[in-house]
Design a protein around this nucleic acid. Structure first.
Lengths: 334, 334
DNA sequence: TTGTACGCGTTATCAC
DNA sequence: GTGATAACGCGTACAA
């Protein structure tokens, strides 16, 4: 509850509310002495501007809405954290929602996000319901879709091609002399980007005439345990498996543990490649070959795009797409 | 930018704006036919309520502000995610900030959080700057401090005693016959709760007359790599070390890897206990004995307290404290 | 049950 | 440089 208002500050400083408002936004447009008085009054009263009222009046609420599938996912936690920090530096508040990988849930989140008349809205991926796209188009808020590239973005996009990641992974395993490959993933039925990595992987196997290649899905969320389960499943179906791509480093870690448990040599018998370059990936045994997606870079680029669009000149109108790429990090597991 | 307003809906439905407003909040207080008309108009126009204006008028913005040290930390990601989901179900928006373990940074976040006239404000821990406490006291918003218990909360608190976690850990190692103990932690100089776990651990060692006990800190954030570094440091200072408590499962995992690398038997030669019960803790080799803090439960309880306070009767005035406790999960590493 | 009128705290446009 | 004044879109007595 707002106790002290701009009016109180104005009274104490013996100026009009408008002058206070002006000073708060453009200190230079006000005389030195008036400024000093206002400054003093603000501090003395402990005045905190009411951004709700400000947003109403200005019809632009320095709120940026971010919707990710799940903040528990380390990838998105990194990006959101970066975004939060970068945007806060420019005076933007971040309001965050988790879609739980559900397009309908995302639609609901977009709806309430829009009711804040946000300065910008950030979504994950390029796949949304028709209604979501319509609402977004109707609003004049800048929209950034992140963590995926490929299809046409609604407005702006920052990310990379997951299909290419799949290709990179397959190529690497083949380069290592592996010919009986498998892609194991978690939640492929919902995680569209993981599915794209799988597709890219399979396609490359097909194109290059790899002897055997399969794909296996664990319906639950990516986890170490999923990796242990998946390894056992695939070993039953492909006893001669020699190259394994995982949709997530967590899954890969589970695979490594299970290999160790069963005395399967990595990379002696099987090469393993992950995705994400998570915290542990460089330290585990054996250290994990993986693909780094640059989640922090995505966050920085998204923030830059938004700030440019809002504060910058209007020369950059629509259609901004930034490819942050990916990098294969070769370690001992392959 | 808000195109269609309540007025537009009212016109189309041939009723007054206040009737629309009433219907939107209490559908039963409006006649059937008026309701139908309004419903139809809302859908037809794609009306989205402007929460900014609503917040101003009602002087309560259905925004809940959450401030955690870092959303990258899996503990807090879990709690924030739960909170987000639970609160969204009751129509609250979550606006999130990271204090990066800095009290001054937290103060700045609280300041801007308050400028949204939030329905409630959720902080991590019980330690804040004087100015933060003052601002919070001045505002009439409900305040919940979470993930820590012990000192007097500003308003409400949900969490557990970290000192007790330290004691539990020490007791367990001693029970296992270990007498040369060490607590290794990351960021103890900033992470007050990790420091409390360390203090509880050391105090219990002192109280029970353990032969040797030390404490070691890695100044950077908790990580697997920190664990590998810390193990080497402590082994130099205590070659006969036989029991190790880690401030975080990530650190513990690093310790496990490094032990494996150096051929140190776990738990044969050294017992290892972690904290957090993270994703991998049950699946690693050996599986990790750890203390579970129930981060999701904390989220649920915080949400319940807030919703009760706001929508419930005022009988529960002040001083709500919920102890979510902790649980030792014994696995093979000890 | 429905409508009228006023106010929420701020911004923005003009005159002064 | 400064200060009235009119929105901004909606909640809420109060009256009808």
């Amino acid at each position: 509850m707002q106790r002290v208002t701009m009016m109180d500050v104005a009274k104490l400083a013996r100026v009009s509310p408008s002058t206070v408002s002006l000073y708060l936004r453009k200190p230079d447009a006000v005389s030195q002495e008036a400024g000093k008085q206002i400054e003093r009054s603000v501090r003395e009263l402990g005045y905190v501007p009411n951004l709700v009222a400000g947003g109403l009046a200005a019809a632009s609420s320095r709120v940026v809405s971010i919707i990710v599938p799940s903040i528990r996912n380390a990838f998105f936690a990194e990006t959101v954290s970066t975004l939060q920090t970068e945007l806060a530096a420019d005076g933007f508040q971040v309001i965050q929602g988790n879609s739980e990988y559900g397009p309908d849930h995302e639609e609901a989140l977009v709806r309430t996000a829009l009711s804040w008349a946000p300065a910008a809205i950030i979504l994950t991926g390029l796949s949304h319901t028709g209604q979501t796209r319509r609402m977004l188009a109707a609003s004049s808020a800048p929209v950034v879709e992140m963590w995926e590239l490929g299809a046409e973005p609604i407005d702006m996009a920052v990310g990379f091609s997951h299909a290419e990641v799949g290709i990179t992974t397959a190529r690497h395993l083949i380069l290592k002399g592996r010919r009986k490959l498998c892609f194991v993933g978690a939640r492929l039925q919902e995680d569209r980007r993981a599915a794209q990595r799988a597709d890219g992987f399979m396609q490359h196997c097909r194109d290059t005439g790899v002897n055997k290649f399969e794909m296996l899905n664990y319906p639950g969320p990516a986890s170490v345990e999923a990796g242990t389960i998946l390894l056992n499943q695939i070993r039953q179906r492909m006893p001669d498996l020699d190259g394994l791509a995982c949709s997530n480093d967590l899954v890969a870690l589970g695979v490594l543990f299970e290999c160790q448990r069963q005395g399967i040599a990595v990379p002696g018998q099987i090469s393993v490649v992950g995705f994400g370059d998570l915290d542990f990936s460089g330290s585990c045994i054996p250290s994990l070959t993986t693909v780094r997606p640059f989640g922090d870079l995505i966050g920085r680029e998204v923030a830059r795009l938004i700030i440019d669009r809002i504060t910058g000149d209007m020369s950059d109108a629509l259609g901004h797409v930034v490819d942050t790429g990916h990098a294969l990090i070769e370690r001992s597991s392959s």
